[in-house]
Amino acid sequence: MNPMDRFRLDDQTVIVTGAARGIGLAVAELCVHAGANVAIIDILEQQGEASAKRLAEASGKKVRFYGADLRDWNRAQSVVQEIGNDFGSTQVLMNCIGIGPNTEVLKISAQEWQDVMNVNVNAQFFIAQAVAKSMVESGGGSIVAIGSNSGLIVDRPQPQAHYNASKAAVHQMVKSLAVELAPHKIRVNAVAPGFVMTDMTKDAIANSGWLPIWEQNTPMGRMAKPEEIAFAMLYLASDAASYVTGSILVVDGGYTCW
């Protein structure tokens, strides 16, 4: 066996949440290149359908889209069942859903706080729990979540107390899941990106003038490309990381070194 084959996901079923665009889409595309069949889950149905169709046509792999609001516990359970019926057992979950509004702490409403927690924490947990149940039955698997360096430090200058708190919660959730699921041969890890050039950050950049500050505070002097985060997630999902669980892999261009 070629040792580099351990980075591949040949004929495995990978669920990627939040993959209609952004980091999730880059992850789905990389998984297809690594040999996987991919189930995309997103609330953005039109974009999700188009992304799944494009990836399937380009790769020849099985790629399907499932519209689902994962803030709903029941829907998280049912969509995993649907995917199981269509694909068989799932070996990998790439949990890429998240939102990041920028609001000053004194102006955050109760609804906005709940919205961030519902997407970034609750939805991530609901789908991870549902997939973990299926992985227990099939003999194991790997779950990789999107955290953030904002779960480790307070990024500046944007105001985002709710986002920071949600990502710290994701990191602790990942560690807790890793401990409890290890006996079932399920590994759970997270990637903690710094600033990544996605549609979400482009909107913030366009109206804020924050980009020069972000770049100045990053030793590598630039934002990440979505595929640079995807490669880190692929490593954690693959057999190349077979002894890695409960880890938060920081991919932030050195931002948290200062």
Rank of each mutant, 00 (worst) to 15 (best):
L181C: 03
P212W: 06
A76W: 02
A178W: 12
P159Q: 06
W113S: 02
C257M: 13
V119M: 01
V136H: 02
I43A: 14
E82I: 00
V38C: 07
I229Q: 07
E29I: 00
W113V: 02
Q111E: 14
A230T: 04
A204R: 11
S142A: 15
G100T: 02
G48K: 09
M173D: 05
V105E: 01
Y243P: 01
C96K: 01
K167A: 05
V170Y: 04
Q216P: 00
E82H: 10
R54M: 13
G18D: 06
V188S: 08
E215S: 02
A232E: 02
Q111C: 00
S150C: 14
M135I: 03
G100F: 11
Q81D: 14
V121F: 03
M200R: 12
L106E: 15
M200V: 11
D239W: 00
V92L: 02
A182V: 12
D203M: 13
K133T: 11
N85F: 05
Y255E: 03
F195N: 10
R54N: 09
A190R: 02
D11Y: 06
W113Y: 13
N118I: 00
L234R: 07
V174R: 07
V251P: 03
V32D: 07
Q160N: 13
G194A: 05
G151N: 07
D42I: 08
G100Q: 12
G18C: 10
G221C: 09
F7R: 07
F126A: 12
